[in-house]
């Protein structure tokens, strides 16, 4: 799988409360909820983001609560991947489980700037910065994690694999 898009750049400790503020958690429909994605850190994010765009951030992205709504709204907004130096543990799991691609790569997180054009090959873990003509290597996901993401989430991929009953 390959994604390509322009980047949005954020700093350390982007928490789940700024990704999707708790005051909206009574909204059940993902599309409605996603209208508030990143609202408290980047007011125009939802207006500016295009399908395939990439979020780049520094350490501990997604810290805070364990709400699955956080990776969900990012996914529903059409973001193709989140690249960060590190992710908070439960956000990392939840993102993969709902089929939201993420990559950990400190070099990419540091060198990519806002609005750079970036292409990601998930099979090899190679991140290409088209604007700067640089490449960075992230640890690629093993086949079964790639399977989860390309199926659109853990439960769908398990169903496809004929797992369970």
């Amino acid at each position: 799988m390959i994604v390509k898009g322009k980047t949005f750049k954020y700093g350390d400790n982007v928490d789940t409360d700024v990704i999707i503020p708790a005051r909206y958690l009574n909204i059940a429909e993902p599309e409605e909820l996603a209208k508030h994605c990143m609202e408290d850190i980047d007011t125009d994010f939802v207006q500016k983001v295009n399908l395939g765009d990439i979020i780049v951030a520094n350490k501990n992205f997604g810290c805070g609560s364990s709400r699955e709504h956080a990776p969900l709204v990012i996914k529903v907004c059409g973001v193709g991947c989140v690249i960060a130096s590190s992710f908070a543990r439960i956000f990392y799991r939840n993102a993969i489980n709902i089929g939201m691609p993420i990559l950990e790569c400190d070099e990419a997180a540091k060198k990519i700037e806002a609005d750079d054009e970036v292409q990601i090959d998930f099979e090899t873990g190679v991140i290409t910065n088209v604007t700067k003509n640089e490449t960075y290597q992230a640890l690629p996901f093993p086949a079964f994690i790639q399977g989860i993401i390309s199926s659109g989430g853990l439960l769908k991929s398990l169903k496809e694999r004929g797992a369970g009953c």
Partner: peptide
């Protein structure tokens, strides 16, 4: 270890979970 609700659902369905 603690997990999210999708992990729990998958665990109940298949008896497996993924870890880093």
């Amino acid at each position: 270890t603690g997990v999210g609700s999708t992990d729990m659902a998958a665990g109940m369905a298949t008896g497996k979970a993924w870890f880093r």
